[in-house]
Design a protein around this nucleic acid. Structure first.
Lengths: 119, 119
DNA sequence: TTGCATAGGGATAAATTTTTCCCCTATTGT
DNA sequence: ACAATAGGGGAAAAATTTATCCCTATGCAA
């Protein structure tokens, strides 16, 4: 595992939530798990731009942060299902707020982002 | 400027908001500017863990994304003030939602994060 | 006259995150 | 035998983000 060289700072609420949500795909993972896409392979299909590896890594982190739980069924071929914990579920309204803002300003954002990524 | 090699994806609202808020210090910059800390030097003092350089870079990006405006006063020593645009102001409730969630679960989060960063 | 404050930028290094590639388990179907 | 499916993980490379260092300029205070 990677060993951090610059210390964490956990001063305020924004630092704290940042620590658990930072990661390119974490918010989407939580979102799709909440929507009922529980198995790793489903999640990989839902998020095809992410490498399989990172999804696994980020799922592990979400689990370590107690936002999701992992259930392994002892069958072959293997079956695994993730679910939100109660704690994780409290994040859903926050994620909705993010997604809604993005949706509401979709047109404008797309233009702005594309324009500013030209130069 | 850095030239991206992996294309952006701007499919859903979460992608879009991610594009403008991703960046270690951007949320805090918006927050403090909203609180009235407008000058670069104030912001640097408010966010001492960030290097001066990155704050400038991220302020520029926020400006390019039309979330803040920059006013340069032609005086010596130089004086600059940032303000939220109307568009940027619409983000404040979203940022509050993030910060509040972190504050509400402060104890728990601090423990979880420290525990999981041990090993 | 040296030092500090103000604002900003270039070049380069370091830190961190994500991707790529390859390998392993076990069963079912061809 | 061999591929496909389902889930994982190590090692190293590539991508991306942040940090460090040094330089510009002016006016004011010790």
């Amino acid at each position: 595992m990677y060993e951090r060289k610059i210390p964490l700072n956990l001063n305020c609420g924004l630092d704290l939530i940042g620590e658990v949500l930072y990661g390119k795909w974490k918010i989407r993972l939580l979102w799709f798990i909440n929507e009922g896409h529980k198995r790793p392979s489903e999640l990989q299909r839902k998020i095809p731009d992410a490498s399989r590896r990172v999804l696994n890594i980020q799922l592990k982190e979400l689990e370590a942060h107690e936002l999701i739980t992992k259930k392994i069924y002892p069958v072959v071929p293997p079956k695994v299902e993730y679910s939100l914990t109660d704690f994780g579920r409290t994040l859903i309204p926050v994620i909705s707020a993010l997604g809604n803002w993005g949706d509401e300003h979709e047109e404008r954002l797309r233009n702005i982002i594309l324009k500013s990524s030209q130069n």
